[in-house]
Nucleic acid binder design. Structure first.
Lengths: 335, 335
DNA sequence: GCAACAAATGCAAGCGTTTTTATCTATCTT
DNA sequence: AAGATAGATAAAAACGCTTGCATTTGTTGC
């Protein structure tokens, strides 16, 4: 007694129609007489027939599945994007194949290959820089791709982000306005253009506008993690900084606690602005002033854009910038 | 110039062998002469052939895909489990179809149906109580299922957890030992047996052992969220509690801040023990004493168990309890 | 009542693999 | 040297569905 599956053929026989008709009913094709539709539906119900998505995928070349590449699912930033992606995907009846491509363990290209083999209809890519081999792999597959919270300096690939340059510039200017001359830039990997190009540029632009010399020794590159934040505090302090822009909330929270735990008064003696406005910014004391990105929306809009691509709809704008703002909390002195 | 896919047939022709032989090579079947294997591999390389997983799935009845049902991907608890699941899945060459089934928006059964339609080889289920209709759906599909961090009182379905009864009992006893007579039990949904049966039982057992009467007005049922934690603080305080067991870290962190922000001294005036030992417990001040669950491992072991089921290996133990402990931090008075 | 047309249905060829069965080809045995 | 045996390979039938095309049925107008 094996897993006795009932197929479209069984339904067809039982309803005395052809497989084609059953298929039409199942797929909501309007070219079916109401009474035959009724009849078929009744048999489907009776036999408890469930279409096999794999067979469907093979026959139709559409799997109603999208791949989502995420660097670290436990990082609230990415998880929040994923939530938006998921909701919109569900809305449009797509399933998500999730794969994490954390720098170390799972190499992007391997992961990508396994996802593409599954014939996904589209792909959302988050995190990390896209290198040439990855780009080539994507091109070759001809699968629509959208980057979420991730930047492609060549603007070849569709993407949804905020204006990182402007956001960081504003944040930095804010710190300058409150009297800081030595502002640290505490960042994740600089080889990710989002940091190394966009955010850094905003930081530099604000300095330049205030005629403060850019000092490379105030740039601290580390990884996105709580521990890394704690660990980098001392170095930043010793470099003489009196404020910092931090490019990730986990990192910022670790950094903040690194300071707080050594008795530094924040914001009185040191100001911090972080970048993602996740729940973490509200959990710590003092609460963190943050650049606010519409995380959920970035994910949602990215997925929506992808659905358009998959439907071969006309896309007017494939590089989307969503609005940002700065939420003032208690890690900065009121201005 | 459509997406010109090259198939196993192309490879076979080019290498002047049959499709069957190519298939054997691709699948590492040993019954191929080394020189033919070589020849075929060369052609595969040359044509840059990639097997189509969908066709494979249809022909072999194995998709090398597992479904993962998660209540809320932004909750670090579940995300941590997912990380463990993902790593082991990747190790065994499975892809993950992720679907979130948050109580409200996405109904479990709908989600389940769409995942099962995709012919997943197995399923990891997290969160929420499994009701009869869900159970029926699972049974009918004959797909192996493992619960991760989720309990099935009937023990019919494989699962990986800690001993919640014992853990909560210990934690409660600890609070009793430090002098508390009125200990609140701040919990997520009680209709989830993990709360309503296991944890509550542990809480009651500790009280009973200390001859403290169980007082239902000290049980606070709410949802797993930061806001909910903040919101419930007042009620708990007014109920006269001097300590609390909280069953989720986000909830606990909100609860803690609810207290801290109203000037209550923790742990001097109020003690808190939370349940998941996620990063959040270290981020807040004071840091939270917590029951420690091996989150990553729960996910990893669950996935490993699932692989065994999918291989139809003999399972000696389908209800697995991993060890727990209590990590003492600063939300409890040293004992 | 019949031609002309549109709507509904059926037929059957795929989709790209795996897998069973059969066929071949070496290599041993004695 | 012939028969036996095991290992390689080939042929072809699934797998469960979609879809283009052909055919049938039903409708409409005159």
């Amino acid at each position: 007694m094996e897993k006795q599956t009932i197929t479209i053929y069984d339904v067809a026989r039982e309803a005395s129609v052809s497989m084609a008709t059953v298929s039409r009913v199942v797929n909501g094709n309007p070219n079916v007489r109401p009474d035959t539709r009724e009849k078929v539906l009744k048999v489907i119900e009776k036999l408890d027939y469930r279409p096999n998505a794999v067979a469907r995928g093979l026959a139709s070349h559409r799997t109603t599945t999208v791949g989502v590449i995420i660097p670290d699912i436990t990082n609230i930033f990415y998880a929040s994007l994923a939530r938006g992606i998921n909701d919109v995907a569900t809305m449009y009846k797509y399933n998500i194949i999730l794969a994490s491509a954390d720098e170390g363990k799972h190499k992007v290209n391997t992961v990508l290959e396994s996802i593409l083999a599954k014939q996904v209809d589209g792909l959302i890519y988050m995190g990390q820089n896209i290198d040439d081999s990855t780009r080539k792999e994507l091109d070759r597959s001809k699968t629509p791709v959208v980057l979420a919270g991730t930047v492609d300096p060549t603007a070849k690939i569709g993407s949804v982000n905020i204006d990182y340059v402007a956001a960081v510039k504003e944040a930095t200017a804010r710190l300058i306005a409150s009297g800081n001359q030595h502002i640290a830039f505490v960042t994740g990997p600089l080889n990710d253009p989002i940091n190394g190009q966009y955010r850094l540029k905003g930081y530099q632009a604000a300095l330049a506008e205030a005629k403060i010399a850019y000092d490379e020794s105030l740039v601290f590159e580390t990884e996105y993690s709580y521990r890394a934040g704690e660990a980098v505090w001392d170095a930043v302090k010793h470099a003489g900084a009196t404020a910092a822009i931090v490019t990730d909330d986990e990192l910022a929270v670790g950094f903040l606690n690194g300071g707080v735990d050594t008795g530094v008064k924040i914001p009185e003696d040191f100001e911090i602005i972080t970048s993602n406005n996740t729940m973490l910014t509200e959990i710590v004391r003092p609460k963190l002033t943050s650049i606010a990105q519409p995380l959920y929306d970035i994910g949602a809009v990215a997925m929506r854009l992808l659905t358009k691509m998959m439907n071969k709809e006309e896309i007017d704008q494939n590089t989307i910038l969503l609005p940002h703002s700065i939420i003032t909390r208690n890690s900065t002195r009121s201005k």
